[in-house]
């Protein structure tokens, strides 16, 4: 049970990565939203200092998606690692309200989608149509409103009970 709690971040990212490759009956132009769902999970778990989501797990998740989608190897790996870097920077920002945290997440999704569009354009050496990416960004932000509370529940359940420590402020 304890190991399950520890592995919860990795399991949730793995489940969302697998789900991204399943045939959901979405139009090909709108399927881009599916690989962006693990982005939300990676971002949220990276923000949590207690969660164990190592870089290599993110690498494997991206590589698995590259293999399953038959796309160029390394594409989703780079996108997911970029998400991790964005989340590391976002964790330094002080946001007290839920709205502020959601705004930060929305900004991260925009940054990651922009990066993925740029990377795909670089791969093909031509500017790709940005509209499917923009549409997917909006859908992902809406999906985040549902997914973030679910991840929050997982986070709450996976957090092991620790000894409470009293700390004295310096000033």
């Amino acid at each position: 049970m304890r190991s399950l709690r520890l592995l919860m971040p990795i399991i949730s990212v793995a489940v969302l990565t697998l789900a991204a490759a399943l045939p959901w009956g979405l139009a090909a132009e709108d399927r881009f939203v599916l690989p962006l769902l693990p982005v939300i999970a990676i971002y949220q778990w990276t923000l949590d200092p207690d969660a164990w989501l190592p870089e290599w797990a993110i690498f494997i998740a991206g590589l698995t998606l590259d293999v399953l989608t038959q796309g160029p190897l390394g594409y989703w790996v780079l996108v997911y690692l970029f998400t991790y870097i964005v989340a590391l920077f976002a964790s330094r920002a002080r946001t007290e309200t839920a709205a502020g945290r959601m705004a930060l997440l929305a900004a991260a999704i925009v940054a990651v989608t922009g990066f993925s569009w740029m990377l795909a354009s670089l791969y093909f050496l031509q500017l790709l149509d940005w509209q499917p990416y923009a549409r997917s960004t909006l859908i992902t932000i809406v999906a985040a409103i549902v997914l973030v509370p679910l991840l929050g529940v997982l986070r709450f359940r996976s957090r092991s009970a620790r000894g409470i420590r009293l700390t004295r402020g310096s000033g």
Binding site: P49, G74, V77, L81, I164, T167, G169
Partner: peptide, 30 residues
């Protein structure tokens, strides 16, 4: 005087050299 579980106790995640290595490997694969 706070009863804290995480705030301030955990140092937070930092960028590690392994990340650079993985980015380099992914770029090579691409």
């Amino acid at each position: 005087l706070f009863l804290r579980r995480t705030d301030g106790v955990a140092p937070g995640k930092r960028m590690r050299p392994v990340l650079l290595l993985l980015v380099f490997a992914a770029s090579g694969l691409l």
